[in-house]
Write a protein that binds this DNA or RNA. Sequence first.
DNA 1: GTTATCGCACTTTTT
DNA 2: GTGCGATAAC
Length: 770
Amino acid sequence: MQLNEKQEIAKNTIDWPLLIIAWAWSGKTATLTTRVEYMIKEKKIDPKSLLCVTFTNKAAREMRERIGKKLWVVIDNNIYRQRNLPLMWTFHSIWVFFLKEILWKYDVSQLWVNLKKDFLIYSEEDKLKVLKDIIVNDLKLDEKQFKARQIAYYISEAKNSFLTAKDYGSVVDSYIKEKVMDAYKIYEVKMIENNALDFDDILFKTLQLLKNPNILEYYQEKYKYIMVDEYQDTNLVQYEIVKLLASKYRNLAVVWDDWQSIYSWRGADMRNILNFKRDYSEAIVVKLEQNYRSTKHIIESANCVVKNNKTALEKTLWTDNEHWEKICLIEAPDDKLEASIVAKIIKEKVSNNSVILNEMKDPLSNAENIKQSSRDSSDKSSEWQVSKYSDNLILYRTNWQSRQIEEALMSEWIPYKVVGWLKFYDRKEVKDILWYLRAIYNSNDVISFKRIINTPSRKIGSRTLEVLDIYKDNFSLPYFQILENVEEIEDLNNWAKRSVKEFFNLMLNFKENANRLEVADLIEYIIKKLDYKNYLIEEFGSEEADWKMDNIKELINLATNYNWLWVVESLSQFLEEVSLVSDLDSVENEADYVTLMTIHTSKWLEQKRVFIVWAEESIFPHIRSLENPKELEEERRLMYVAMTRAKKELYISRASERFYFGNYVRNPISRFIKEIPKECIEDYKMEISSFSLWNSFSSIDSFSSWWSIITKIKARELNDIADFAVWDKVSHHKFGNWLITSLTWEIAEIAFSWTWTKKMNIKIAPVKKI
DNA sequence: GTTATCGCACTTTTT
DNA sequence: GTGCGATAAC
């Protein structure tokens, strides 16, 4: 592979701290992998002494695959099966790997961390469940006033600032923080009781363990070369961990891309770049500014947008690539039409066999670019390629927005796949099984026991659970033992005792079988024993039950990957991996379908044709960011990320009026659209009052004629706010004539009947004064 | 004491 | 639209 001059410097800087400042698609992954290859092949560095950290499993896997190809080794997708290769995984996977290794190697009682080998990883959902229980039952607080999510946020923040519950007192300066401290203390105890870690704990506990000089020494010697990708997304704890590991040999290379920092809400801290410059003042700095993916229009626009951020470094991403299509801006009258337009564009482009330029427009510059391109040479770069469904990527700000797009795609018979929403592991049936497995694996895991104790129904309800809780707290025994001794609990009547005892015997049976069966077989055994299929049929009907059983088969299928391990380990590792997978991991490349996902998830993807939908104020940028300049800047970076996912064609759409929150809402156009230079944009608008037109469109099957009609319709004139006042009578083409009942700035509340009012932006609303 | 139903509040982004 | 919680019915 041909690296450019700067990439070459990065590659050759081995025994020295290195800071790579990268921009979108500037070939940083290629640089990193080439660097690894160079270290192993040329410099004869032991691959096992390399540690490469990424943020997503997808990124890690991609790097592993590239390295595997270069070194002619088959890379295994299981961290415990790596042989004689660099350790390339996500932060969380690596630290869990370390934690388990430490717990096996060292005497637990001598460590400062209260953790047993068979710990579980709690999801965000599990964590909230624990906290909610604390708020309501332990602290007796009003859960509406003290929301679990809020408390969770404070605790997370505390852990990211190296504060344990005991230390938290030092930052308490308000009533809420006082309560947070109370909750945190109990939370810590409960997590130890449950023998579970949340995502923050994985990092925090790792850091605590690495402060043990023996342990630190071991890992410093083992991993002498450390690389961290997406460094802008690290939080302070991650920073400290990496710093400790690298402090002996100082062979640390990090990739920094501040324009793509979109995780500050998760604790990612831009201060880390300052910390790095302070701690590694001798570091060599390399800037990668040339983009090899997108057309000029896209790069220029993305640049212009992000330049509105005051905190961005003065830097410009540039490209040699051609201009190709302008950015297409779509304004639809309403949300349904917006989705429909997107669907129809995709349909039209694909069914017409329209061609997308795979590389560049001009064959000459194309050749030039391929030569310069940092792509793998194995990558076939035919000049023209027929447009497929899989060339299309639809991006939105929040998960729930997918629904409308899905409906539109369905009605056009377009195959699609939503990434993230209703994640595989989030489905009820999959979760049920996982909860059984967790309870079998870890007798302390109250959360799991409670979830399954009445699934399928065993006539064990809230009252019984309450009593069990009291006994658990009084005797501080693992939950499983409380169940075992249920007969001695006086507060329960006989049949409740019998039900619980039956459940206990069932679980005991499962536990015994877990020592003998591999995960996949164990799941099948559980399903059979529970008569789970009939339960599903009763609960959801046979059709849905079939569907759900398919998911379980899929789960069993996944579990067979763990059959190579001895039985107890296979369960342990299956559960670990399930907790650490991300949605993105399910993205495959073979099948031909449109992909839908949030912008955050898309960070590691590129696509020829990209749609950014719902580009409206209060959606994107998100309403919660409008007040806060810092958050607004993060939203803008998010826009930058979204735009730079596109290689050739970029569509940005919005609707003048949309139905959500059970209301019709008119959002002003996203400020980010206004920041795109006019000359990069092609504007398409459908008139707001064209509902009748639309009805006639739906009979016109050909998109082209429909498309040509909308392109002819000019933008509607805006209303002048000054023309309107409270109690003015206005007319609306759809809702008739009524009154403005309140008016604040542009937002008017209009009463269309005595009981029904709507808020709309008077400036763009299709209303006239009469 | 457990389950069914209705009504309400709620919707950021993720390892 | 929807998932969850409080209340009514079994």
